[in-house]
Design a protein around this nucleic acid. Structure first.
Lengths: 131, 131
DNA sequence: ATCGCACACGTTATAGCATAACGCAATTGA
DNA sequence: TCAATTGCGTTATGCTATAACGTGTGCGAT
């Protein structure tokens, strides 16, 4: 799926996420964008839906929050399974991809004839700096 | 951590989950237990917190819901990383454990000196019966 | 024995996350 | 030109989770 030109709202939400140190909740994004005319949660959620669809943003299920994708050069193609480490101390999120895990999961789901649509891998813990 | 005797509330919540076909949200559990005297969400959440701690129940982050653990014989010991397939069609959840994935994730986090506390793996898709 | 502590419980209120349902405006393409 | 699609704005609502308060009970230490 090629990424079309982003709309004004989508661009504002994308910028908010890109310039953030860590993940943001939809309501935090809303607060950041109130100055720029945002008034309602739906404005954020609608933009996020599209950004997720385009693969520019990831949703962190265990945080109910969103991060900009850190693979800017891979926006044109599906980059398979995405995994995250999430530091409970500093909030830092690191995105990574691992073909071995992807293949192993693929083998396991194939064994139960399960058709995978979306895979969530999130590792909560503490990063090197946060002991 | 040995599993202590469950309290009355914990037992009721556990039973609700055990007898359910699929995952239940906290509020769905509350509704099921109103007849038996439950009145408030916290009664459910407090019981769930303990059941999670004892490893009798798992939380599905991508559904905001809970399932009874399907490894009844392993309650005494930590059974490492737990993964789930979740069918969008029938709602069926299958729990599984894979040492290869666990080891691979362990190697990857060790490489970034990340100390893992909890790992979430949830695969959304469709089961064999639901095409 | 009784004091202090830990723990489960009950209740009310509130915070945080997400979507339904309506209507309007702009774009596109048959 | 008309219909279909898409994005947008607004109000209202629903679902998920926790804060803050107080009560009661069991139990070990002094």
């Amino acid at each position: 799926m090629a990424t079309p030109q982003l709309t004004k709202n989508q661009t504002m939400v994308m910028d908010a996420l890109s310039h953030s140190e860590g993940p943001l909740s939809a309501y935090t994004i809303l607060d950041k964008l109130r100055d720029q005319g945002f008034r309602a949660p739906l404005q954020v959620y609608r933009a996020l839906d599209k950004l997720l669809e385009y693969g520019l943003v990831h949703r962190l299920e265990s945080l109910n929050a969103f991060v900009a994708c850190t693979c800017p050069h891979e926006h044109e193609h599906d980059h398979g399974v995405t995994a995250f480490t999430i530091c409970e101390g500093c909030g830092q999120v690191t995105e990574f991809h691992d073909i071995a895990i992807e293949q192993r999961l693929s083998a396991l789901t194939r064994a139960q004839s399960f058709k995978t649509e979306k895979t969530t891998i999130e590792i909560r813990g503490h990063c090197q700096s946060c002991v």
